[in-house]
Simulated scan of single mutants.
Amino acid sequence: MRLQDKTAIVTGAASGFGAGIARRFLAEGARVMLADINEQAALDVAAEYGGLGQHVDVADGDSVAAMIDRATELMGGVDILVNNAGVTHLPAPMEEVSEADFDRVFAVNCKSVYLAARSLVPQFKERGSGTILNIASTAGVSPRPRLNWYNASKGWMNTATKAMAVELAPFGIRVNALNPVAGETPLLKSFLGEDTPEMRAKFLSTIPLGRFSTPEDLANAALFLCSDEAALITGVCMEVDGGRCI
């Protein structure tokens, strides 16, 4: 029960890594709001796991503020924020990615971190504690061709994590990130371009441990970084990637 009596928000929690993280946090004693743009899916997963479902568009300031307000009202405050919601564009030469796709990737992957911080950091500062975990990607550490703007958005998240950590440390607030390799999530097909045995084998050949990441892998790492066991750890961008970035 490493998160006993803690409260947490996990965005993009209706599936994939977010659902895995939320489930583990609940099992470890936390009260968790599972937030997602797919409200019904968030409610369904929350009902299954025992958390609170909440609609959020992480790229919209009013929606993010409403999520923070509701979590504060229902749970008495927020101790942990996991910025997990993310999107990608389909693999393509960088100059062929549409402006709309570019804007969407940076709104969901980057602007969302700013919007959540704007709404939640004042509460953390007032209390003198708080933990933020950003879910980035190995794409931001070791970029792959044809995912250029997605790579860049995740590199931004790693830099933002370090910048946030150094600024917020004097207030007792820790900020870390996870860099997962591709996993069995709804985004996998988008990363591969086409989900075929041949494409999977090609991608797996770049991972020394020979498998994709799982929601459980990310949940284990997230639990550690968000628990008091990591009380002296901030500004770390941990690779959960089977050796992909070596």
Rank of each mutant, 00 (worst) to 15 (best):
R2M: 07
I9N: 01
F17Q: 00
F17C: 02
F17A: 00
G18R: 04
G18D: 02
A19D: 03
G20S: 06
A22C: 10
R23Y: 08
L26R: 06
G29Q: 14
G29F: 12
M33C: 12
D36P: 05
I37C: 14
E39Y: 06
E39A: 15
E39C: 12
Q40W: 12
A42P: 03
A42S: 10
A42C: 13
L43K: 14
A47R: 06
Y49V: 13
Y49N: 13
G50C: 11
G50N: 13
L52S: 08
Q54N: 15
V58Y: 00
V58D: 00
A66F: 03
I68Q: 00
R70Y: 02
R70V: 02
G76L: 04
G77K: 03
V78M: 05
D79F: 02
D79N: 06
I80T: 03
N84R: 08
T88S: 15
T88F: 03
P91C: 11
A92F: 08
A92N: 13
A92S: 15
E95T: 13
E96I: 08
A100W: 09
R104E: 09
F106P: 07
C110G: 11
K111M: 14
V113K: 02
A117W: 01
S119L: 06
V121E: 01
V121H: 00
Q123E: 10
F124R: 03
S129I: 11
T131L: 07
L133M: 15
S137D: 08
T138E: 07
P143N: 08
N148M: 09
Y150K: 04
A152I: 04
S153H: 08
K154F: 02
G155F: 04
N158H: 15
K162C: 12
K162P: 08
A163R: 11
V166D: 09
V166W: 13
P170N: 07
F171A: 09
V175M: 00
P180K: 01
V181I: 13
V181A: 12
T185M: 03
L187Y: 05
L187D: 02
L188W: 05
L188D: 05
K189Q: 15
K189P: 13
S190H: 11
F191G: 00
L192H: 02
G193A: 12
M199Q: 12
K202C: 09
S205V: 10
T206Y: 06
I207E: 08
I207Q: 10
T214L: 12
E216N: 14
D217I: 09
L225Y: 00
L225A: 02
L232A: 14
T234S: 07
E239M: 11
V240I: 11
D241N: 12
D241F: 04
R244Y: 12
I246D: 11
I246S: 14
